[in-house]
Every structure is written in C-alpha cells, then in structure tokens.
Simulated scan of single mutants.
Amino acid sequence: MSHQIEVLDLLTDLNRARGTTVVMVLHDLNMAARYAHHLVALSAGRVHATGTPAEVLTTENVRAVFGLDSRVIVDPTSGAPLMLPIGRHHMAAPVAAGDRMG
C-alpha cells in the first residue's frame, strides 16, 4: 500500500511541477477518486460515465458498472468521494445529513 501511495504522489508531483498529463488505469475506485481530476467509468468496453470524481463515483454508477451496492461519502482526508461497498453480510447504515455524495 505504501508503494502505491508513493507512486501516485510522485505522479501528482510530476503533474504539478511539469504540467504533464498522466493517464492511468486504476481499479481501486477510492484511489482514482482521490488522485484524479477526471474519471472515465467503463462498462462492457463502453463509456458509462465521465467527469469529475464527484460526478462519476456515485452509488448509481457503482451499481450500474459493477453490480455492487455501495454508499458514497465525502473522504474526510481529501474531500473526494469515498466509496464504501456493501456486501451481503453488511447492512447499509442510515445516511447522515451531509455525508451523501450521490
């Protein structure tokens, strides 16, 4: 995990210092939302959604693309959307006012 964060931080540094555009494929939705300015969600090889992390990482898109129920809240560290998957053995807790992003 520490190496993953180190690489993502390095890419962010390069982007800021040199204005370099970075294109990457991440399957960790939370890391993608935390580090990217623009996301593209693909489903069956087609673009399902594109936009800012808050526009793309929504409960509706996670369900449509991955067939997974989830809760999307605001990451208290970065302010980015944070997706919390809901498995069969976990019940969704009520959403507190101000927590929901979509």
Results as ranks from 00 to 15, higher is better:
residue 84 L to W: 11
residue 17 A to N: 11
residue 70 S to V: 09
residue 80 A to V: 03
residue 8 L to S: 14
residue 80 A to H: 07
residue 37 H to I: 06
residue 18 R to G: 01
residue 44 A to T: 09
residue 77 T to D: 15
residue 98 G to Y: 15
residue 52 T to D: 03
residue 9 D to C: 02
residue 67 G to Q: 04
residue 33 A to D: 08
residue 62 V to N: 06
residue 29 L to I: 15
residue 33 A to T: 11
residue 79 G to N: 02
residue 66 F to A: 06
residue 69 D to Y: 06
residue 81 P to S: 07
residue 22 V to G: 00
residue 93 A to N: 09
residue 4 Q to M: 08
residue 26 L to M: 09
residue 54 A to W: 04
residue 60 E to R: 15
residue 7 V to G: 00
residue 56 V to E: 00
residue 76 P to S: 00
residue 78 S to L: 05
residue 38 H to M: 01
residue 64 A to C: 07
residue 66 F to E: 12
residue 87 G to C: 11
residue 7 V to E: 02
residue 101 M to N: 05
residue 102 G to P: 04
residue 45 G to Q: 09
residue 99 D to K: 06
residue 35 Y to H: 03
residue 102 G to L: 02
residue 17 A to K: 07
residue 27 H to D: 05
residue 68 L to K: 14
residue 30 N to C: 12
residue 71 R to G: 02
residue 69 D to V: 08
residue 37 H to D: 15
residue 6 E to S: 11
residue 102 G to N: 05
residue 81 P to G: 04
residue 20 T to H: 08
residue 19 G to L: 02
residue 61 N to L: 09
residue 95 V to G: 01
residue 58 T to F: 10
residue 75 D to L: 01
residue 100 R to F: 10
residue 31 M to T: 14
residue 72 V to N: 01
residue 58 T to V: 03
residue 51 G to H: 11
residue 22 V to N: 05
residue 50 T to Y: 00
residue 27 H to E: 06
residue 66 F to Y: 15
residue 49 A to M: 06
residue 9 D to G: 01
residue 20 T to L: 04
residue 72 V to I: 09
residue 64 A to R: 13
residue 5 I to R: 13
residue 17 A to I: 07
residue 60 E to G: 14
residue 34 R to F: 12
residue 63 R to Y: 15
residue 1 M to S: 08
residue 64 A to T: 15
residue 48 H to E: 10
residue 71 R to D: 12
residue 61 N to P: 11
residue 18 R to P: 00
residue 5 I to D: 15
residue 18 R to L: 10
residue 32 A to E: 04
residue 27 H to G: 05
residue 80 A to D: 11
residue 101 M to L: 10
residue 84 L to Q: 06
residue 10 L to C: 02
residue 98 G to Q: 12
residue 92 A to L: 03
residue 82 L to E: 14
residue 49 A to Y: 08
residue 65 V to Q: 02
residue 74 V to S: 03
residue 55 E to Y: 07
residue 46 R to N: 14
residue 94 P to Y: 12
residue 12 T to E: 12
residue 9 D to E: 12
